[in-house]
C-alpha cells in the first residue's frame, strides 16, 4: 500500500525540539513564567507540549504576545512531577517544545464587538495572548472587560500588568478574591459576582472563559442571567492531553479531541457533553 504524505509534521508528531530558556521569572508562590527562544507564529489560546529530558511532557498554554515571534512565553504552575521539573529549570538550559497545538480564541469573530473575559487563577495565562492581541489591535474591539478571580490576593497572576492594561490598553480589569487577609481593599467573592459590574455589553459581547470546569459552569450560568447568548460564549477546556495530535485518545469529550478540536471551543459545540457528568 502506498500512502501519500500529507505534511511533513514529523517534528510535531514525534520528538520535541530543544528551546533555549532566556529567563525564568517567578509570578507567585508556585507559578513561574519561562521565556524561551521564539518559534514563530501561534494563535492566542494554543498550547505547546513542554518536555524535560527523562522526566516527561505536559501541555502548557502559550502566555505571551502572538505579535512577538522572537520569544515564547509559558506560564507554569508547579503542581506535579513534570511541572515542578519545568519550573526548576534555569536560564541557559533547554526545554523540549512540540507545537503549537489546538484552537485559538475567536479574535476575528470578536472584531467590532465588546469582549468579556472571565477567568480565575492560572486560567489567565492562556488568555493573556488574547489580551495582548486586543491591546495591539485596540481599534478592532469595543469595550473590553476582564473579570479575574483568585483564591487570595497574592495568588493573582500578572497583577503588576493590570494598571498598564487599564491605562494603555483601555481594558476594564475587575478582580476579586475568595478570601483576603489584612490590607486587601479589593473585592471578596467569586468571579461570577463581577459579571453584573462589567461595563462591556454582556448581552452582545463575545465571552472568553478559562478556568476549571466548575468555574466555567457557574460563569456560563452567570452570563446567561445577563442575557448573554450561549452562541457568543467560548470556553477553554481541560482534558488529559498526552500527544497533542489526536492519536492517543486520552483527551476525548464526546466526539471532540480537546487537543485538536479544542482547547478553545464555542460553548454550544460542546454543551451537550460538558453539561453531563463523567464524560
Amino acid at each position: 500500500m502506498t500512502i501519500a504524505t500529507k505534511q511533513n509534521l514529523e517534528s510535531i508528531v514525534g520528538a520535541p525540539r530543544p528551546a533555549k530558556i532566556l529567563s525564568v521569572d517567578r509570578n507567585t508562590d508556585d507559578v513561574w513564567t519561562l521565556r524561551l527562544e521564539g518559534q514563530g507564529a501561534f494563535g492566542p489560546g494554543q498550547f505547546n507540549m513542554l518536555y524535560v529530558l527523562g522526566v516527561g511532557e505536559v501541555p502548557i498554554s502559550i502566555s505571551g504576545s502572538p505579535g512577538k515571534t522572537d520569544e515564547l512565553l509559558h506560564t507554569v504552575r508547579g503542581v506535579g512531577g513534570v511541572t515542578n521539573a519545568i519550573t526548576s529549570l534555569k536560564a541557559g538550559q533547554s526545554v523540549g517544545v512540540r507545537g503549537p497545538f489546538g484552537t485559538s480564541w475567536p479574535m476575528a469573530a470578536a472584531k467590532g464587538r465588546d469582549v468579556v473575559i472571565v477567568t480565575g487563577g492560572i486560567g489567565l495565562a492562556p488568555l493573556r495572548p488574547a489580551i495582548y492581541h486586543i491591546i495591539e489591535n485596540r481599534a478592532d474591539y469595543g469595550k473590553v472587560s476582564l473579570l479575574y478571580g483568585a483564591r487570595t490576593p497574592k495568588e493573582m497572576l500578572y497583577a503588576d500588568e493590570f494598571d498598564s492594561w487599564r491605562e494603555t490598553g483601555d481594558i476594564e480589569v475587575l478582580t476579586t478574591v475568595d478570601a483576603a487577609i489584612g490590607a486587601w481593599d479589593g473585592d471578596v467573592g467569586v468571579v461570577t459576582t463581577l459579571i453584573p459590574r462589567a461595563s462591556a455589553d454582556i448581552s452582545d459581547a463575545v465571552a472568553m472563559i478559562c478556568g476549571p470546569e466548575v468555574m466555567t459552569r457557574f460563569t456560563v450560568a452567570g452570563l446567561a442571567e445577563r442575557n448573554q447568548s450561549k452562541d457568543n460564549i467560548y470556553v477553554s477546556l481541560e482534558r488529559n492531553m498526552k500527544c497533542g495530535t489526536a492519536h492517543c485518545g486520552h483527551c476525548q469529550l464526546g466526539p471532540k479531541f480537546v487537543c485538536k478540536d479544542g482547547p478553545v471551543f464555542k460553548f454550544t459545540d460542546v454543551a451537550h457533553w460538558f453539561e453531563k457528568r463523567e464524560v
Partner: peptide
C-alpha cells in the same frame, strides 16, 4: 450560593 462556590476553591485546579 456565592459562599458555596467560594468553598469549592474553583481556581485551585491548574492546567497541568
Amino acid at each position: 450560593e456565592n459562599t458555596r462556590i467560594q468553598l469549592l476553591d474553583i481556581y485551585g485546579r491548574g492546567n497541568e
